[in-house]
Design a protein around this nucleic acid. Structure first.
Lengths: 223, 223
DNA sequence: CGGGTTCTTGACTATCTTCAACGAAAGTGG
DNA sequence: CCACTTTCGTTGAAGATAGTCAAGAACCCG
């Protein structure tokens, strides 16, 4: 999951499981905190998240970290770069996964429909990442966090009375490393939104969106 | 072209033209300043740069711009996201291009080798973009510019006596929008490098790398 | 309940941006 | 070819946003 400009995420298309009955591998699962793969590992499978949330990260020698993406249900992770994983991946919550053979992506053989679906997923990934560049390079802290909350709200928000509730399985520092900020700035920005009654924090990991309009206004200022 | 961690770019692999004799489309060319495609256009062809440099950009409603990538010889641009271009693309210099049918990427039919090569290019693209996230999210202005110059130096540096010379076809604001900075900061950082005798500027678009070691040291601090 | 981690908050600082001015370079038209 | 205009690059001063350092509060887990 990246933070893309609104309406870019094709829910219908992406969330559907693209497994094909005849060739499907059995679903697997992962406990919270367990790792799925590490940077440099040979890619054997791609994985589509069925439930739970994954975290993809990359490290710099000096310890700086970038969270590349969060893997939410419907997302496919593990695209090989020169045959190898290019990020670390671990589970933020218990996760269920639908694995696909790497060959299903790379060879047309076997299941042509699956091949096509995986390829399209990879191409959508490129598009989504291009949007995320804009986020990282050109948006302020408030814009970043507001955009992030909006995406989460549409992908995993639950209606609670008149409001939308978002459960955040990741820590403040995960959010910071995803958005190119520090934990302190993320925390302060949450507080700022809270004081302006744009959101409420039930617990630090449970956000209630009080005013989606205000959130949208912060995320993409008119000009 | 993205700014990736060192040694990640596979020169051999990427620079080679992947056209297949029997199915090849004729080369095309583009004058400096001409556009190749615009965001939202239906993708008909992918293009591999043969000579010259392309610029891929994305705009925010309020005018903020992100340069997504520069297309250097060997690079392939135009991967479709849901069948459409997701960026604008224009030529910074006169450019020669090898076009490929979109179907060559999306269908296995036709030329299986070409299909495979295009797919691998798309997957490498994902890996390279992941590195670029780190750049945008976690690096300082000096680190960004030093990394940028190092990549250019290895991709298009020309030996001039003991030094490497880099010709920059893009403006300061292109560099700024690529690295997530302002033109002023880019300019100041150039000046800073010049004063420290890491580089020399023959003209504002011609960089001479005086000390690649120093540049590397700035690009990736030990810890 | 205790101990460690995570989150929040405060004070201060640094980096980068903004605004502004100027000079250099490049494009335009007579 | 030269003057004119416009764009681009550099530099300075001031300001703002986000980062750093530090401490206390809240939360989680055993």
């Amino acid at each position: 999951m990246y933070v893309t400009v609104p309406s870019d995420f094709d829910l219908e298309n992406a969330q559907s499981c693209i497994a094909h009955a005849t060739t499907a591998l059995p679903q697997t699962s992962l406990k919270a905190g367990a790792h799925l793969f590490r940077e440099g590992d040979e890619v054997e499978r791609l994985h589509q998240v069925t439930s739970g949330v994954l975290r993809l990260t990359r490290l710099l020698e000096d310890g700086r970290r970038q969270v590349i993406a969060f893997g939410y249900p419907g997302d496919i992770v593990g695209f090989p770069s020169n045959g190898r994983h290019h990020t670390d991946c671990d589970a933020l919550t218990d996760v269920h996964l639908q694995p696909y053979r790497r060959a299903a992506l790379e060879d047309g053989q076997g299941d042509p429909l699956l091949h096509k679906n995986l390829l399209q997923a990879a191409l959508r990934e490129i598009g989504a990442m291009q949007d995320h560049f804009m986020m990282l390079g050109r948006k302020s802290a408030s814009e970043k966090l507001a955009s992030f909350l909006l995406v989460l709200s549409s992908r995993c928000g639950e209606s609670v009375g008149p409001y939308t509730e978002i459960e955040l399985p990741m820590s403040r520092s995960d959010i910071a490393d995803f958005l190119g900020l520090t934990t302190e700035t993320v925390s302060r920005t949450f507080t700022h939104f809270r004081k302006n009654e744009i959101i409420a924090l039930e617990r630090s990991h449970t956000v209630i969106v009080l005013s989606p309009e205000a959130l949208r206004a912060v995320a993409q200022p008119e000009d």
